[in-house]
Amino acid sequence: MAEVKVTYDESTDAAYVYLTEPQARVPSARMYACDPAVVDGMINLDFDERGRLIGIEVLAAGSKLPEYLLKSAERLDTEGA
């Protein structure tokens, strides 16, 4: 099974799920914001220049993502670093 890199900043309750190869630094060419009313929060989808989904930003991640995923994520906040 492929591994997916996830970062999490507890101080802002924001997570990012990378859908590119772990060492790749693919720039986002376009961002699509999901309707906050429909998903009950803010979720942004990032696409590369070829239209491929490269990442997902999740705000209010503590209420949107499974706890095991947040616990295993790379921490970006100072308390979890």
Rank of each mutant, 00 (worst) to 15 (best):
Ser72Pro: 08
Ala24Glu: 13
Ala24Phe: 06
Glu79His: 10
Leu59Arg: 05
Ile54Pro: 02
Val4Ser: 13
Tyr8Trp: 11
Glu74Pro: 07
Cys34Trp: 05
Asp40Trp: 03
Thr12His: 09
Ala14Trp: 04
Ala15Trp: 05
Leu45Pro: 02
Phe47Gly: 00
Thr20Met: 11
Leu53His: 04
Pro22Ile: 08
Phe47Lys: 01
Glu79Lys: 10
Leu53Gln: 05
Gly80Ser: 12
Leu19Trp: 10
Gly62Ile: 05
Tyr68Glu: 15
Asp35Trp: 03
Lys64Ser: 12
Lys71Ala: 13
Ala14Leu: 12
Met31His: 03
Leu19Gln: 11
Ile54Val: 08
Lys5Met: 15
Ser28Ala: 14
Ala37Trp: 01
Asp40Leu: 06
Tyr32Val: 07
Asp9Gln: 12
Asp35Ala: 05
Ala73His: 09
Asp35Gln: 05
Tyr8Gln: 09
Asp13His: 14
Gly62Met: 09
Ala14Arg: 12
Glu10Trp: 08
Arg75Val: 04
Gly80Arg: 07
Glu74Cys: 07
Ala24Cys: 03
Val58Phe: 06
Asp46Asn: 08
Asp40Val: 04
Arg30Asn: 05
Asp48Met: 00
Arg30Asp: 07
Gly80Ala: 10
Leu70Asn: 10
Gly55His: 02
Val26Lys: 02
Glu21Ala: 13
Arg75Gly: 12
Leu59Lys: 06
Ala29Gln: 03
Asp48Cys: 00
Val39Pro: 02
Lys5Ala: 15
Leu59Phe: 12
Arg25Gly: 07
Gly41Asn: 02
Arg52Tyr: 03
Ala60His: 10
Ala81Pro: 04
Arg52Asn: 05
Met42Lys: 06
Asn44Val: 04
Ile54Trp: 01
Tyr68Ser: 15
Pro22Asp: 13
Glu79Ile: 06
Arg52Phe: 03
Thr7Arg: 13
Pro36Trp: 03
Leu70Ile: 09
Val39Leu: 03
Phe47Gln: 02
Asp77Pro: 07
Glu49Thr: 00
Ala33Tyr: 08
Thr7Leu: 12
Tyr16Ile: 07
Arg25Tyr: 08
Met1Val: 15
Arg75Trp: 05
Tyr8Lys: 09
Glu74Asn: 11
Lys64Gln: 14
Lys71Thr: 08
Val58Tyr: 05
Ala2Met: 15
Val6Thr: 14
Leu65Gly: 08
Arg52Val: 00
Ala14Ser: 13
Tyr16Trp: 10
Glu49Leu: 00
Arg52Ala: 05
Pro66Gln: 14
Tyr68Arg: 15
Ala29Asn: 06
Glu3Met: 15
Ser63Ala: 13
Lys5Glu: 15
Glu79Phe: 08
Thr12Ile: 13
Glu49Asp: 00
